[in-house]
Computed example of a mutant assay.
Amino acid sequence: METADFEYIRDLCHQRAAIVLDLEKSYLIESRLQPLARTEGLGTIADLVAKMRTTGYGTLHGKVIEAMTTNETSFFRDLQPFEALKKVILPELIARRSLSRQLRIWCAACSTGQEPYTIAMLIEENFPQLAAWDVKILATDLSTQVLERARSGRFNQIEVNRGLPSPLVVKYFQRNGMQWELCERVRNKVEFRQLNLIDAWPAINTMDIVFIRNVLIYFDVQTKKDILGKVRNKLRCDGYLFLGGAESTFSLDDSFVRTEVEKASIYRLKGYDDPVLPTRAVKAASVRA
């Protein structure tokens, strides 16, 4: 791959999606963009870049950015966050929201939907009382292509095998040819929307729980700070933030304090004292992270 072409793709992805691509990632660009070049009727990545250079930002540029996003996900990924959600966090929030009977959960960078659907099934299985509440699960992603897949609720055998317990497959999925289709009742619990995390978030309401896992690692420091600052403004004062296992707010935003819940690291806004369940079985970390 020519250096000039690599730099064009790198700059495009950084400016439009804040994705950081180092020179050693050139192999990744080639593996992801060569199929796109063929689909577009172009012989090489050089031809693809040449076509983009001759036009203003448009559909083709968007397809390139989507191709360069990482869409790794699975059901019940890193099990501990979902154990924390089931055993501590949702029970606490149900107690606090007993008057409003309203819960708002947001999964950012949701990819093909396994994370929000995991939360929807977890609620269905463990909190039947929430059927009478106003519960909304919002799932967003940059890629319109993966959102289309997510809305369909269809997953192949490999995707179903990754983290999804067999009883839940039997209960909530139906075989449809070579794929498994999630039941409509669970699909309807999740609203999918397109959102670029580096843009403004005017349509995002205040949230009780925010999942933004395994995405900050792809951004530079300033972008991480900007995103965490926007999360802070969208999180209720007693809300919960979930990051990926390799991610942290440390040295990025000191408004958050890390708390350990069921062996999962959860982030809360600094200075909040729980007025409802002060003796809950959680251990606050001694340092911000």
Rank of each mutant, 00 (worst) to 15 (best):
D141G: 02
Q102H: 09
C107L: 11
D11L: 05
R154Q: 14
G244W: 05
G177A: 07
I266T: 06
G244V: 01
K234R: 11
L33M: 06
E124R: 07
K189C: 10
L23Y: 03
D5K: 02
Y267D: 05
L241Q: 06
S265P: 01
S74G: 00
I119N: 00
R97I: 08
W133C: 14
L277E: 10
R16V: 15
N233K: 10
N196V: 08
R10Y: 04
F6L: 08
M207T: 14
L269E: 02
Y240D: 04
A285V: 13
E83L: 03
L48G: 00
A285D: 12
A46D: 14
W133F: 07
R101Q: 15
I105C: 01
R193L: 11
E7P: 01
R97L: 08
I204R: 06
V160D: 00
Q129T: 15
N214C: 11
P167E: 08
V287G: 13
G43T: 14
S143G: 15
Y57M: 15
N188T: 13
G43R: 09
K270E: 12
F250T: 04
I158V: 15
A37L: 08
L23I: 04
K263C: 07
V276E: 04
V210P: 14
I105W: 03
E247H: 03
L252R: 03
G239E: 01
L21N: 01
K51H: 06
Q145L: 10
N161S: 13
F250Y: 11
R104G: 11
V287M: 13
E262A: 12
K136I: 14
D220W: 02
F256D: 02
N205R: 11
I137V: 14
R280P: 00
E72A: 05
S111W: 01
G177F: 04
T223E: 05
P91F: 00
F127G: 10
E92W: 05
M207N: 02
M68Y: 03
N161C: 02
V215D: 03
S265R: 05
Y240W: 12
A284E: 11
R213I: 10
A108K: 00
P165Q: 09
S26M: 13
G58M: 02
I65P: 15
